[in-house]
Amino acid sequence: MATNLNVNGTSYQVDLPDDVPLLWVLRDEVGLTGTKFGCGVAACGACTVHIDGEAVRSCQVALSDVWGDVTTIEGLGTPDSMAKIQQAWVDHQVAQCGYCQSGQIMQAAALLAENSSPTDADIDDAMQGNLCRCGTYPRIRAAIHDAASKLKEA
């Protein structure tokens, strides 16, 4: 039975079993590969997307449980038209291997939507579920602070 899914403003009919996690629907069915598989157990944050603006681990949300509109890294901005938070990521040259950064950016975007002036402690709380083996944390922190001030200027 096909399930209807709204991703980045586009509607998709997906014919997969109900229990397939959203992550694998996005990657292998919809063809949006910006959302990454890291652990499958919500321990690394690489698969973070937004459902109705809330940051969730897409590896833990079954297709039949998707309760709203999905936004992935591709929906946040594009290479030619990046979101402000992505521009901050570029300005601070955050990425190294880059594999975790889609998840980091989606998590940070949700933080900034809730809290326009996060402190270092707020960033620690919000971001500690997102693992980065390259150790880009100092630049992620700087980029979040920078994005916060840029968003306020807008």
């Binding site: 590969t33 890294i73 591709e74 946040l76 901005g77 290479p79 990046m82 880059g98 950064q101």
Partner: peptide, 14 residues
């Protein structure tokens, strides 16, 4: 590689 890795468009093996 920075823009690709910031927009989910960089291609990894997976």
């Amino acid at each position: 590689d920075i823009v690709g890795k910031t927009t989910g468009t960089a291609e990894y093996g997976i």
